[in-house]
Design a protein around this nucleic acid. Structure first.
Lengths: 141, 141
DNA sequence: GTCTACCTGAGACTCGGTCTCGACAAACCC
DNA sequence: GGGTTTGTCGAGACCGAGTCTCAGGTAGAC
């Protein structure tokens, strides 16, 4: 079976070793329908008796986050969560009911940032935009 | 001396008691030039020998955050920080060198959100935008 | 002044995340 | 295929932010 998992592809491309634990974590992440926490993966690894250590899960998430293959969200509740995503710069719309998220492109934010630079005098190097609401599916149900 | 501190005004308006510890925390917050963490306040309270418990500082920050008089930031580093601010909806531009932040108004983001609602089908109820860069002062120094 | 609900400090506790360290195994070389 | 290097692993101690509990204190209404 081919390694179709884009997380593994990203790891390999960056010269990280494709170890068994990393494959397992990538599989766990690929199985998540919605956003997930490190604790979710730890619990899932435990119930599947994968024998993966907690530290390894955190480390793998760190690596994947640094590659942009996974992104860390700050939910309005204050909790952290992760979502698998494409590496290009983008933002997330997160459904606050089912937790599914969707990547969205820049969508005119660039102009907003430029306006703010002009009005505030700040040089803006980085930003984070997270959007929360109901996905089309949860809207109707 | 009059209670000019807007944090205390907000507390009183909402029916919270103006206790000595709360006044002290409000004073500490008002003294912060840049964003600050709960730990900063705890340390400051300690060095000033104010005799305020850690729990009280967290509780007061919670209350103030629920009133919108203080807002919680998620820095790019992953740390949390607080800033005092006005209660109206707005965003923060944070200087990544000196930590000073500035409130900015909506700045066209409303249109961006509306566009995203149309293109994604999500109903967007809430969003969070944080901007990081260099303030005018740090740009030139 | 009295009374009561709200608030407080201390310190135990929880929990997400990190660090350390000896063991292991990918991947490269021959 | 076998040997070597070095990145990675699991276990468990550790850390630090934030929460909870509870007995005692006090703001503010009357």
């Amino acid at each position: 079976m081919v390694d179709a998992n884009p997380l593994l592809v990203a790891l390999e491309r960056e010269g990280y070793r494709l170890t068994e634990p990393r494959r397992a974590v990538a599989r766990l992440i690929a199985d998540q329908a919605a956003h997930f926490s490190a604790a979710d993966l730890v619990a899932e690894a435990r119930t599947q008796r994968l024998g993966i250590g907690r530290a390894t899960i955190f480390r793998t998430l760190d690596v994947l986050a640094s590659l942009g293959a996974v992104e860390r969200l700050d939910l309005p509740s204050g909790d952290h969560a992760y979502v698998a995503c494409e590496a290009a710069h983008h933002h997330h719309v997160v459904c606050s009911r089912c937790g599914r998220s969707r990547d969205v492109a820049d969508a005119g934010l660039r102009n907003v940032v430029r306006d703010l630079e002009r009005t505030t005098g700040y040089r803006i190097d980085d930003h984070r935009l997270e959007l929360f609401g109901l996905c089309p599916n949860c809207r109707v149900n």
